[in-house]
């Protein structure tokens, strides 16, 4: 379902809308509370994700700027339904809706150009009131898998100076919500064209480090994947730059 079959693979809302809404609200609250004489400083961050895999399209990014009280996932814990949906179907809408419902979240958005393939990159921009405690989380599905996703969580970006950039490499996680059959019926990416989200949880039901795909080339004859879909360790490079 979803991202790979639909004409409109766009996220539900535009980046611009999110930026305007969140800055409006935060500016308002900063004025109201009147803790400082000055208004809070605006900060704008550009987040770019480079697809470092050989054969895995990355689905539209779910990008969240937040405080410490929001957690997109925790290793060893159960994935939220929003994360499950992102990791199984590639659609970040429910993941971002969960974030927006959390009071520790300052801004969220998704990338707007659909899935991006090996060698490609995708960027988004978010604006928030600056705080030294700002954190960034990013999630994106590896489309030719059952429920693998890559990303970063709780990445501290609040101490970046304007014009400064930092980068990291992101591991691949197994959402643990769908058995890794690698069958064509169960993976939404172009290698399979199968199902996206399925509410059934028939796996470990804990987020872990992904053990990789086995593929038909390595003896799993029921797999729709071949050796080109494997990865080792990292799937993406994430760069965040404070623009303002």
């Amino acid at each position: 379902m979803g991202l790979f079959n639909r004409q409109s693979a766009h996220p539900r809302r535009s980046i611009l809308t999110v930026v305007l809404i969140s800055t409006g609200l935060l500016a308002l609250s900063a004025c109201k509370h009147d803790e400082d004489d000055a208004m809070a400083t605006q900060a704008m961050y550009q987040v770019t994700v480079y697809n470092l895999t050989n054969g895995q399209p990355l689905t539209p990014l779910g990008v969240v700027i937040h405080g410490a009280a929001y957690s997109p996932w925790q290793l060893g814990s159960t994935a939220s339904v929003g994360l499950e949906t992102l990791a199984e179907s590639g659609d970040p809408t429910a993941f971002l809706a969960e974030a927006d419902a959390n009071t520790a979240v300052m801004a969220s958005t998704s990338s707007s150009n659909g899935p991006f393939g090996p060698g490609a990159s995708e960027s988004v921009t978010l604006s928030v009131d600056h705080s030294s405690l700002l954190q960034l989380s990013v999630a994106s599905m590896l489309a030719n898998t059952n429920d693998a996703f890559t990303g970063v969580s709780h990445w501290e970006i609040g101490r970046l100076a304007v014009g400064e950039s930092v980068s990291t490499m992101s591991h691949v996680f197994d959402a643990g919500t769908e058995a890794n059959t690698e069958s064509s019926a169960t993976m939404p990416g172009p290698a399979a064209g199968g199902e996206g989200f399925n509410a059934t949880r028939d796996d470990l039901d804990k987020v872990t480090i992904h053990r990789g795909v086995v593929t038909a080339d390595d003896g799993l004859t029921s797999s729709a994947l071949d050796e080109s879909h494997r990865w080792l360790g990292y799937a993406a490079k994430v760069v965040v730059t404070r623009m303002q």
Partner: peptide, 25 residues
Amino acid sequence: GDQDPTGGNSDLDSTIHRWQNPVAK
């Protein structure tokens, strides 16, 4: 690992027992 539970080279299952680092936090 392999996909032959009663033979093959390995007694491990290639779909279960592989890992990628890190293995612990």
